[in-house]
């Protein structure tokens, strides 16, 4: 909330704040090839996606206190594509330290690949919101 108040002072007349952050919907891990996908597991987080709920609350508070009004909310899927689960795991260690690849993901992937002989890539899919906020005052 403090950041949102500070940003308000930085906006020129007619300016726009664009806040991009994930929803608190868990990110899904899939085995994909072209348009075909098989669900593997939900990605876990050490704080169970609590920080994204707090971000939502900060935006809601900034609006209720009259700093901004919501011009538009856009939801979209943001995906990370990896050649393998180990590659995704390494990427997450570097870029998403709170993320936990559950042991179930490895077992499930092995089951799918053994039973269906499906080659493919690993996809991590997150639901992201983009809030376009117009400053009041």
């Amino acid at each position: 909330m403090h950041a949102l108040k500070s940003i308000h002072r930085l906006l020129a007349p007619g300016g726009l704040l664009l806040d991009i952050h994930p929803t608190d919907e868990p990110a899904g891990i899939y085995l994909g090839r072209g348009r075909s996908e098989h669900f593997i597991a939900w990605l876990e987080e050490t704080d169970e996606y609590e920080e994204y709920r707090q971000a939502d609350q900060a935006v809601a508070q900034a609006m209720s206190e009259g700093f901004y009004r919501l011009e538009r909310r856009n939801l979209f899927w943001f995906t990370i594509h990896a050649a393998s689960l180990p590659e995704l795991e390494l990427y997450l260690q570097q870029e998403w330290k709170d993320a936990i690849l559950p042991p179930l993901a490895w077992r499930r992937l092995a089951q799918i690949q053994d039973s269906r002989q499906i080659p493919g890539e690993i996809r991590l899919r997150e639901r992201i919101q983009l809030n376009a906020l117009l400053p009041h005052g």
Binding site: N74, F76, I80, H81, E87, L88, Y91
Partner: peptide, 19 residues
């Protein structure tokens, strides 16, 4: 090789929201 948002959904959303 890691590919991040290969369909450019984020860019599209940004353009739709911010012009």
């Amino acid at each position: 090789m890691i590919r991040v948002d290969p369909r450019a959904n984020e860019t599209r959303a940004l353009r739709q929201s911010a012009g």
